[in-house]
Design a protein around this nucleic acid. Structure first.
Lengths: 191, 191
DNA sequence: AGAAAAACTTAATCTAGATTAAGAAATATA
DNA sequence: TATATTTCTTAATCTAGATTAAGTTTTTCT
């Protein structure tokens, strides 16, 4: 199971045997049943999670009580609230499994320890973050420039299988509009 | 002038004398007059830029010909199109100085060379990217949850001096609405 | 200093998407 | 296999912000 993380690392960097072992040794694993949380508003985010199997969403609840989904995570993604994790602040986010899931996780002190001295693990996280940055920028660009309907069509085009995997109201929330509006879009599309 | 980059690095990491020198040695510098570009749509983004003095905006031009500002950069920020820079693809972005500016810049091959072996410089960019990630996530969260008026007020609250520094139409574009709407907000506020 | 260009304002009209509400399907649970 | 819960749909009404267009103010350049 830890193999999936090992393989992911090897896709990007080439640690020595010792470097890899030192890193994998401080990884913990956990099974999360569907609908359970790995992070809840008001708590401290103590782990960065690598998703081995399953799907998660991170969302916050606004002042009107509406859930706003800001990210999804699936297999081979790292998921955390960086703000809370790095700055040791209380999180405003909830991270919930949308289906039965397995994660590997690493605590802040353990991660700090490895990052203090391991060149390749630093490289690994730097590269991951570069890719995340590209994805975030692209998302911001889309949000600015596309209508709701275009956002849905674009998302569907690039992630057809994923759309089947989650309830529509979560996708609507992620794309920045209401579930009712998503229904409208789909009705239009299939007519 | 390269002192400002050196100081920035020392705020986050502790390279050896040699590590710092090797890095600073491959940095180039450039003065950019107001309105000039350091990146233009269709070109390859060959540099990551560290802003010593001045202000830049990165924007793309949509199919209707409207400029959409997706980022600003000021003193002590790194600015590039990561997608183009990392993946060696043609950029869709323009990066323009909004006032006379000075940048330090590093080419992709030179940066790759340093990152291959320097632990501290890898750490440095990893930490920068973690902070960028936090900012991006916060921005997405705001964009989802705040009205145009709230976005402006929040931005103004946290960056009062910066609002004076750029034309309003750029800020409107960055916040995701039209300059006319920003005028409306301000008229309301000052009445 | 004067002309041209760039930036900002105001106001009327229009529209994408929100809101509200009610019912229908689908899924989970006993 | 019935009941409860969750998810999805439809439709009427409403609103934040876009669009268009014209005029004004500010900045830049010669």
């Amino acid at each position: 199971m830890i193999e999936s993380l090992k393989n992911h690392i090897l896709r990007f960097v080439s640690p020595s045997k010792k470097e890899m072992e030192d890193f994998l040794n401080i990884i913990e694993s956990e099974n999360i049943p569907a609908k359970h949380y790995i992070l809840k508003e008001g708590h401290y985010c103590n782990y960065n999670h690598f998703i081995v199997k399953g799907c998660f969403r991170s969302f916050f609840i606004n002042e009107k009580g509406v859930e706003k989904t800001i990210n999804f995570g699936i297999e081979d993604w790292w998921l955390t609230d960086f703000d809370s994790f790095m700055n040791r602040t209380q999180t405003q986010l909830n991270i919930q499994a949308t289906e039965d899931a397995t994660v590997l996780k690493i605590s802040k002190p353990n991660l700090d320890m490895v990052l203090k001295s391991s060149l390749e693990i630093n490289k690994y996280f730097r590269i991951i973050l570069e890719r995340v940055r590209i994805a975030d920028q692209r998302r911001i660009q889309y949000m600015f420039n596309l209508s709701g309907e275009e956002l849905y069509n674009t998302f569907y085009e690039y992630n057809p299988e994923f759309v089947q995997r989650i309830p529509q109201y979560m996708l609507a929330s992620y794309l920045g509009f209401t579930p009712e509006f998503l229904s409208k879009i789909r009705a239009k599309k299939h007519s």
